[in-house]
Amino acid sequence: MTTLDAPRPVSALVGAEPRSVPDRLRRLVRPFAGYLFVFPALGVLVVFYYVPALLLFVISFFHYHLGGAGSSFAGLDNFRVLFAQPLFWKSLVVTGYYVLVMVPATLVISLALAMLVRDAARHSKRKRGGLSQALIFLPHVTPLVATSLVWVYILNPQYGVMNYVLRAFVSNPPGWLESTGYSMPSIEIYSLWHSVGFYMVLFLAGLASIPDRLLEAARVEGVRGFAAFRRVVFPLLTPSVYLVTVLATVNTMQAFSQIYTLTGGAHGEAGGPAYSTTTDALLIYQTAFFYNHFSLAATMSLMLFVLLVLLTVVQRWGFSKLVFYR
């Protein structure tokens, strides 16, 4: 490498000071300084993220055994086996059910909460909604596994608090995690409890960027309440709606800890009853670490990845007409 391209320090042009050793070192390092700063983070990413991701892609085309010994090229065998598995298709349906309920519910509930908190803040004396905001956000900072275990007790059909309360209204409350029909809704209730606070904060940030004056302008024109929400607030909030939709989709498609824990992962029986809560993530985990079928698990991960990319592309396209950026 020549030093021709490196900018010459002023001292060199003036010829005033002789160059010191640190000065020379600095000149030598300067062109790479940016890379040096990025390296630690990039190194971690490459070793623990990009390489495994690439390996996963490779493994899905091999009959792979842990450690690599005795592995052989499999072509599309893994895909053939996978597509012939009813459980794989079932898990797709379960995941779809989870995502299709969670994403709209997250949007509606967190936006409604954000509107309520903002309204409460506006009518409170100090014009802040700090406490209600903190209380709603609180579940999000609790560990998934710990609070899931608590919810196992809350949702216990015989002794749980949930049914204790419900018995006051209905004679035959649901069996929650122990029934195939209510196991998924149980997980959805828990997940919403845990996550809506986070999405609410995103919506609050979006709402804060809408000047009050616009709502007053709408009010002067006789547009208030829900009409004002529909015609002024929502259109200006679409960037937040898009962000929340994408984040909620990715997060729910990859959800694992709460499903594993709520459905009895501690006793090695996650995903039940009768596979009613076996999502993709759970099935991948069980295939890899329960049945030691790594190449099949890798193939499923690849499929999940492709599905996520497709979904995100579709969402981008769908939202491109809706989202308004100022």
């Binding site: 000047p211 004056r213 616009l214 007053e216 302008a217 709408a218 009010r219 002067v220 024109e221 006789g222 208030r224 002024v232 259109p235 200006l236 308004f324 100022r326």
Partner: peptide, 20 residues
Amino acid sequence: WEPVERGIGMVFQNYALFPH
């Protein structure tokens, strides 16, 4: 009365036009 019932029109400071 609401502004619209009063029959007033208003031009706000900085106009407050709907950007979307």
